[in-house]
Nucleic acid binder design. Structure first.
Length: 594
RNA sequence: GCCGGCGUAGCUCAAUGGUAGAGCAACCGCCUUGUAAGUGGUAGGUUAUGGGUUCGAUUCCCAUCGUCGGCUCCA
């Protein structure tokens, strides 16, 4: 657990939220005396409580519950903590099966509230506030009076499995938020509103970037011309950077024979995510869920010398994975996507440098897209794994040393690695401070073995190379979604699908506007001329709504002087300048990726 | 997949158990305009799809598809 989380759990705000969840439970039980209660912790930005209720809750119910909560808070109920024996607790909660299950876990001293194993035998404590008694380890505020009734709000109801297990009952979870002051609540709600405005699904429609379609199928993305241009620019930059940094670009097919996926192990451990096979002349082929087996075969296509290493094969490889319908989400979770994938093959002695390089390259790539705040997660050897301990150890050390050298803040997820190797996941913070996981750098001790990879060492003998799998942007789809939200659709000039809108004031300016547009296009700018019969004001409004970075207004004055009048989408209005001056300005800003 | 909500014109949204309406966009005109919507008109819907209840369904019920908020899972 991170320092950040520990601090939060000790904070006043944490106690307020945790207490608010109890008050909410009290209000819900008043409304539904037969309610069965599960758990109700404080979470980031708020709290929730899970209930088993006789009927589904409606938004109106939430309003009633919230109002009742405010009354309960005003009555200043005290939170009283009491330690009890397991048997007493069982008597107290005899009608509450979820609580009884929790008590069993606590009594046997190996499961905490969330069902996670713990070392210590747990004490059993209950908290009483008003008419509500809850099995709870606290901490709470002393009295509900410490909760600010103007700083709480119930947000939504959602289904949640008991203990997160889909085989167990589905409960109703009410989410709420609580703060110390009304202003903090307001600020939080503003942030939620702002996030809604930036939602890539909304902007995707408004800016005509992408869509999906019933008839095409869920989770399959259609990139429209505007989105396509952005993708092209991202990919072009990506290609250049990879070529400059020692990568070889490779291309591989979308399907491969069943035996390939048997060798790679995917049919063993990844089959649930793969689509049904296609029959081709008595042979079964699978659509690829990953690119690695193909890259491994490129490696194997010739005898490799230790002098050849490291080798880096990069591909924007399109893969298809079965995802359960309920998890699909805009561009962020889809069924067909293009990974910006690469596989590195290196000698053991090159490994630390190779990790340094990869992390550094990854962060540089992301910085070009305006992401400067990184948080890393190091996942280490799980219980079930393949590969020798020494390899795991060396790789984990190398990963951690790299993080330290680079000064990237990181958390260790002990035992959180895949069975085939440890990894670093890199998250970036966007303009609203939200974290998104993009890059992943993973060791693979499985496939080199399965494909029997080797290189000839200095000693003339065969050796097994280390293999690292990495994606920097993650996938083009997810990255695009994050980019849209990060920039709120106002992409920097180099990425903007349309960079310039020419705005002739009257019809007599159209020809000149087209002439200038032709010059700008020749210089590489993406320009459109709005020669519609709209008035200038309407043209500006349309260009603003499309978040076009430069608007060039053309009237009599500009035409006579051979100039253009620049207006930026920021509202800034530098005014008339020569076409050359504008061109210079625009090209400079494109170069600087502003 | 599961729990709950939603699906009406290209978009945003009204309305009703008795032949569906607005704004924007589109199209055709008029206006020729100086930094965020000039103006008149025209056209556009088997109310997601398939069943059922009903004299009558877009409205009520069921299923399917899609979508939204979550759970679980993940690039």
């Amino acid at each position: 657990m991170s320092q950040h989380n520990e601090d939060y759990e000790k904070s006043e705000l944490y106690r307020i939220r945790h207490s608010a969840s109890h008050v909410m439970a009290e209000a819900v039980i008043e409304m539904f005396p037969d309610a069965r209660v599960a758990i109700g912790p404080a979470i980031e930005d708020g709290f929730y409580y899970d209930f088993d209720l006789p009927r589904s809750l409606t938004p109106e119910d939430l309003e009633v519950i919230e109002n009742r909560m405010k009354e309960l808070i005003k009555s200043k109920e005290n939170f009283v903590c009491q330690e009890v024996s397991a048997d007493d607790a069982r008597k107290l909660f005899k009608d509450q099966p979820y609580k009884l299950e929790l008590i069993d876990g606590l009594e046997h001293g190996n499961l905490d509230e969330d069902g996670n194993p713990t070392q210590d035998k747990q004490k059993i404590s209950i908290y009483t506030s008003g008419n509500f008694v809850d099995l709870c380890r606290g901490p709470h505020v002393e009295t509900t009076g410490q909760i600010n009734p103007t700083a709480i709000k119930l947000l939504n109801v959602a289904g949640a499995y008991w203990r997160g297990d889909e085989k167990r009952p589905m409960l109703q979870r009410i989410y709420g938020t609580a703060w110390e002051s009304k202003d903090q609540l307001k600020e939080y709600l503003w942030k939620l509103e702002e996030a809604k405005k930036r939602d890539h699904r909304k902007l995707g429609k408004e800016l005509d970037l992408f869509s999906s379609n019933d008839e095409v199928g869920q989770g399959l993305i259609l990139w429209h011309p505007n989105g396509g241009m952005i993708r092209y620019q991202v990919e072009r930059y990506w290609d250049e950077q990879h070529i400059r940094n020692g990568y070889d670009l490779v291309y591989t097919p979308h399907i491969g024979k069943a035996s390939l996926w048997e060798t790679s192990g995917h049919l063993g451990f990844y089959k649930e995510n793969m689509y049904s096979p296609i029959q081709i002349e008595e042979q079964e082929y699978y659509i690829k869920p990953m690119n690695c087996p193909f890259h491994l075969h490129i490696y194997k296509s010739q005898l490799r010398s230790y002098r050849d290493l490291p080798l880096r094969f990069a591909e924007k490889g399109t893969v298809y994975r079965y995802e359960r319908s309920g998890v699909l989400h805009g561009l962020l979770r889809v069924r067909g996507f293009t990974q910006d994938d690469a596989h590195h093959f290196c000698r053991p002695d090159q490994m630390p440098d190779e990790i340094d390089f990869t992390l550094n390259f990854s962060m540089n790539m992301l910085r070009a897209f305006g992401f400067t705040d990184f948080q890393a997660y190091l996942s280490t050897k799980p219980e079930k794994s393949v590969g020798e301990d020494i390899m795991w150890h060396d790789a984990e050390v190398a990963l951690e040393e790299t993080l330290k050298r680079m000064g990237v803040p990181y958390e260790v997820d002990a035992g959180g690695g895949a069975f085939y190797g440890p990894k670093i996941d890199l998250k970036v913070k966007d303009a609203l401070g939200r974290e998104w996981q993009l890059s992943t750098i993973q060791f693979d001790f499985n496939e080199p073995e399965r494909f029997d990879l080797s290189y000839i060492g200095e000693d003339g003998k065969e050796h097994r190379p280390y293999m690292v799998h990495r994606a920097l942007l993650g996938s083009m789809e997810r990255f695009f979604g994050v980019l849209i939200e990060h920039y709120a659709g106002a992409f920097p000039v180099w990425l903007s699908p349309k960079q310039v809108t020419m705005i002739p004031i009257a019809d007599r300016h159209n020809d000149y506007a087209h002439e200038v547009a032709a010059r700008l296009k020749k210089a590489g700018l993406r320009v459109i001329v709005d020669d519609s019969s709209d008035r200038m004001n309407a043209k500006i409004r349309n260009a603003q709504k499309q978040k076009v970075p430069y608007m060039l207004v053309i009237g009599d004055r500009e035409m006579e002087e051979g100039q253009v009048a620049l207006r930026r989408r920021s509202g800034e209005n530098p005014g008339p300048m020569s076409v050359e001056a504008f061109l210079e300005l625009a090209l400079r800003e494109i170069e600087e990726k502003i």
